[in-house]
Design a protein around this nucleic acid. Structure first.
Lengths: 230, 230
DNA sequence: ACCTGAACACCGTTCAAGT
DNA sequence: ACCTGAACACCGTTCAAGT
């Protein structure tokens, strides 16, 4: 009675399950059941679970907005793009973990990479640095989303970490103790925005063309190196 | 005949399995079998799988060297410490994924946080910035290890990504196409070292006390902001 | 009271037997 | 030749029945 079963309908159902029930709520067997067939049938359309993961990821990434409202600085547009990427990953619990295990080379991942490279170039970042920078930026965003939303299970007692950090021994961990409030401060949004600024600033100041730190110099004093990237 | 069974022996055996066989090679049932008991028995010593994960992680982190050879710059020592952390995560396939899902508040994780905070302070980073910086640095390192070593399975065809990137359409993805060699260039070590320098540079230039970018300014020109943090 | 064998409710993947 | 029910080899967790 359902639609005639296809790669497409399998991916749609799988993403639906992931979005509504998290990583534990999606399985080949449940997808098969929802599509009113046996689990073995799916193997006619999909290589296995890990190919399905890749397909789900790219399907989800279609929702990322790569052309945010113009008329703002490239920095602002880059931050909006990465926020859109983070939002899409957050919308389907477990998608970020899945993204970390899957090297995204689907068309939608490429579309995001392309847009980020263009924005960095607009910011004066040379292509060699831009290539690595895109990896770094996307990895950071994926990781931070993966770190928070482990799953959809409400098993995370919000106070548990706070209690552990608060109880830290002043004698054994003086720096941690002194900064215990700072370690827990800030909303996710604030930390995300700060981290992006940090990484972006570093990218602009440390093009790949710049020499590598010679190990035994410096004393907190920043080096005179190229600010005018490329 | 085996040792009398304890939290400790369970963690030891679990970490042994993880190290030798990756995340798929470790399970509560296999640990129980190796310890010559039934799976239910473990629940007398451990709350469940996720507590075991946290215990394994902290046990593994004991091997991280937090006091690298002195007589070098704080930057150098910080990089050595993070490399040691990365090495420990890499040594047990799947440990990094597990670390992303587990908020590490065990004594060994605290020891690492403490050492990083001390090094950043030595570098002139204020405690408020240092607290967030430690999170960012550890998250990056954890994520990059998690991204590569998905498991111990040799299922990763090294050429697969290269082929996908090489085949990218010049018309649809001009920037990606132009930088396709750069996207694949460099060893893991080189990218790791570069990324750490980028993040560190950003941390030094963007203390939390600095104002937030006012959205519609800049043109790649860096701001005059404090290099001499705090 | 404590420990645990067996059961429960799941997995992904394979394959022989049917159409 | 193609599709798939049933089986295989696993999971984590629970619980009643034994000591």
């Amino acid at each position: 009675m359902k639609q005639p079963l296809s790669r497409d309908s399998i991916v749609t159902e799988a993403l639906r399950q992931l979005t509504s029930s998290g990583i534990a709520g999606m399985s080949l067997r449940k997808v098969a059941a929802a599509l009113e067939t046996g689990p073995a049938t799916l193997y006619a359309y999909v290589e296995g679970l890990s190919e399905l993961h890749a397909l789900i990821l790219d399907r989800a990434l279609a929702k990322v907005t790569v052309r945010p409202t113009a008329n703002t600085s490239w920095r602002d547009r880059l931050q909006r793009l990465l926020r859109s990427y983070a939002r899409v990953l957050t919308a389907s619990p477990g998608l970020a973990q899945l993204a970390l295990g899957t090297i995204a080379v689907g068309p939608n991942a490429l579309r995001i990479t392309e847009a980020l490279m263009a924005l960095l170039e607009e910011g004066g970042v040379d292509p060699a640095t831009g290539a690595w920078a895109v990896d770094l930026l996307m990895l950071y965003v994926t990781a931070i989303v993966a770190e928070r939303g482990g799953g959809v299970d409400p098993a995370a007692p919000k106070g548990f970490v706070a209690r552990a950090v608060d109880a830290v021994s002043e004698r054994d961990y003086p720096h941690v103790h002194a900064a215990r409030e700072q370690l827990l401060s800030g909303t996710g949004e604030e930390r995300f925005a700060w981290a992006l600024q940090v990484i972006l600033e570093g990218i602009l100041r440390r093009p790949r063309s710049s020499a590598v730190e010679p190990a035994a110099t410096t004393k907190s004093r920043p080096r005179k190196r190229s600010a005018h990237a490329r």
